[in-house]
Deep mutational scan, measured.
Amino acid sequence: KSAVKALFDYKAQREDELTFTKSAIIQNVEKQDGGWWRGDYGGKKQLWFPSNYVEEMI
């Protein structure tokens, strides 16, 4: 599983989504079709976030 870095702040709209700030590192990313991926951040595990808010880390 990979890690991504947030390009923008994102505030969860639902309880199954992540809230994060710009430059946050989201771990254990599971990529899905449809523009939403799952990952771990801030003590939350495998919640959804919009993939267009992040960049992949190499």
Rank of each mutant, 00 (worst) to 15 (best):
D33S: 12
S51R: 09
A6D: 05
A3W: 14
E55T: 12
A12N: 04
D40F: 00
S51A: 14
D9A: 08
G34E: 08
A24T: 07
F8H: 13
A12S: 09
T21N: 12
L7S: 08
S2C: 15
V29T: 03
Q13R: 12
G35L: 11
W36T: 00
A6F: 00
K31G: 03
G42T: 04
R38F: 05
V29G: 02
E56Y: 06
E15S: 12
I26H: 01
L18T: 00
R38Y: 04
I25Q: 04
K44Q: 13
K1R: 15
D9V: 00
D40N: 03
V29K: 02
A3D: 12
K1N: 12
K22W: 03
E30V: 15
R38C: 06
W48L: 13
Q32A: 14
Y41G: 02
E55N: 06
G35D: 11
Q27P: 03
F49D: 02
N52H: 13
D16N: 13
Q27M: 14
E17N: 01
T19N: 09
A6T: 07
K22L: 06
W37H: 03
G35H: 08
K31P: 06
M57I: 15
E30G: 09
G35F: 10
T19M: 04
G35K: 09
L18G: 00
A3L: 14
G39R: 00
V54Y: 01
K44N: 10
I25T: 05
D33F: 09
A3N: 14
A12F: 01
Y41H: 10
W36R: 09
G43S: 10
E17L: 00
T21W: 08
A12D: 04
S51G: 07
Y41F: 11
K31W: 06
Y53I: 12
S51K: 10
D9M: 01
I58A: 13
D40S: 01
K22Y: 05
T19A: 07
K5P: 00
I26K: 01
G43Y: 07
Q46P: 03
K1V: 12
V4T: 04
K5G: 00
Q13K: 12
T21R: 12
Y41M: 05
Q46T: 05
Y53Q: 07
T21V: 12
K31H: 05
T19C: 08
W48I: 05
Y41C: 06
D33T: 12
L7E: 07
V29F: 02
R14Q: 11
D16I: 08
A6G: 05
I58E: 14
T19V: 04
E15C: 14
K45H: 13
G39H: 00
V29R: 01
E30N: 13
W48M: 08
K31Q: 08
D9L: 00
P50T: 00
K44E: 10
V29P: 00
T21P: 15
W48H: 05
G34Y: 06
I58N: 14
L47E: 05
E17G: 03
K45W: 08
W48D: 02
W37M: 07
K44R: 11
K44M: 13
Q32L: 15
W36V: 00
L7P: 04
D33K: 10
A12M: 04
G39F: 00
D33N: 11
F49E: 03
A6V: 06
Y10M: 00
D16H: 08
Y41K: 02
F49P: 03
V29H: 01
W36H: 05
F8R: 15
W37A: 04
G34L: 06
Q32K: 13
G34M: 06
W37R: 00
G34Q: 07
V4Y: 13
Q27H: 14
D9R: 01
K5V: 13
E56D: 13
K31D: 03
Q13M: 12
V54K: 01
Q27F: 14
K44P: 02
G43D: 13
S2R: 12
A3M: 15
L47S: 12
S51P: 04
P50S: 00
K44Y: 12
L18A: 01
T19D: 11
A3Q: 14
Q13S: 10
T19S: 14
T21I: 12
N52K: 10
Q13A: 11
E55I: 12
S2T: 15
I58W: 13
S23A: 13
W36S: 04
E15G: 09
G43I: 07
S23P: 02
G43E: 11
L7V: 11
D40V: 00
G43C: 10
G43A: 09
A6R: 02
K11E: 15
N28L: 04
E17C: 07
A6I: 03
G39Q: 00
A3V: 15
E15I: 11
A6Y: 00
K45Q: 12
G39E: 02
N28Y: 06
A24Y: 00
W36E: 04
D16E: 11
A24W: 00
S51D: 06
Y53L: 15
D9Y: 03
A12C: 08
A12Q: 07
E15Q: 10
K1M: 12
K22Q: 11
G39W: 00
A12T: 05
F49S: 02
T19I: 02
F49R: 00
D40Q: 00
R14P: 05
T21Y: 11
K5N: 04
E30R: 13
N28R: 07
Q32G: 12
P50V: 00
K1H: 13
G39P: 03
Q27T: 15
D9K: 01
V54N: 03
G35W: 07
Q32H: 15
G42H: 08
Q32C: 15
R14T: 13
K31Y: 08
V4N: 03
A12G: 12
V4P: 03
Y41T: 05
F8S: 09
P50E: 03
P50G: 00
S23V: 04
G42C: 13
I25P: 00
L18N: 02
N28H: 07
Q46K: 08
D40P: 00
K44D: 11
G39L: 00
F20R: 01
L7C: 14
V29I: 08
F20K: 02
G39I: 02
L18K: 01
D16W: 10
S23C: 15
E17V: 00
E55K: 09
G42A: 11
K44T: 06
W37Q: 03
F49I: 02
L47W: 04
F49H: 03
Y10Q: 04
E55V: 13
V4M: 11
A3E: 12
T19Y: 04
Y53S: 08
G42S: 08
Q46D: 07
K11Y: 14
Y10R: 03
R14M: 10
V4K: 02
G39M: 00
D9H: 03
E30Q: 14
W37N: 02
E55A: 10
W37P: 03
A3S: 15
E55C: 13
F8L: 13
K11N: 15
Q46S: 09
S2W: 11
P50K: 02
Y10S: 05
E15K: 12
Q13V: 12
D33P: 14
G43R: 07
W36M: 08
N52R: 10
E15Y: 10
E55Q: 10
Q13I: 11
D33A: 13
I26G: 00
T21C: 15
S23M: 10
K31F: 10
Y10A: 01
N28E: 07
F49C: 04
S51W: 06
I58G: 13
D9S: 07
G34V: 05
E56L: 08
D16T: 10
K5E: 07
A12Y: 03
M57G: 09
Q13W: 06
W36F: 08
E30I: 15
T19R: 02
Y10E: 06
W37F: 05
A6P: 06
Q27Y: 14
W36G: 02
G34R: 05
I25E: 06
K44W: 08
Q27L: 15
Q13P: 03
K1D: 11
K45G: 05
L47T: 04
A3G: 08
A24F: 00
E56I: 10
R38I: 09
Y10H: 06
G35A: 09
Q13D: 09
R14S: 14
N52C: 14
E30T: 15
R38S: 06
P50Y: 01
V29N: 01
I58Q: 14
S2E: 10
D16F: 08
Q27W: 12
Q46H: 09
F8T: 09
W37I: 02
A12R: 02
L7H: 06
G35R: 07
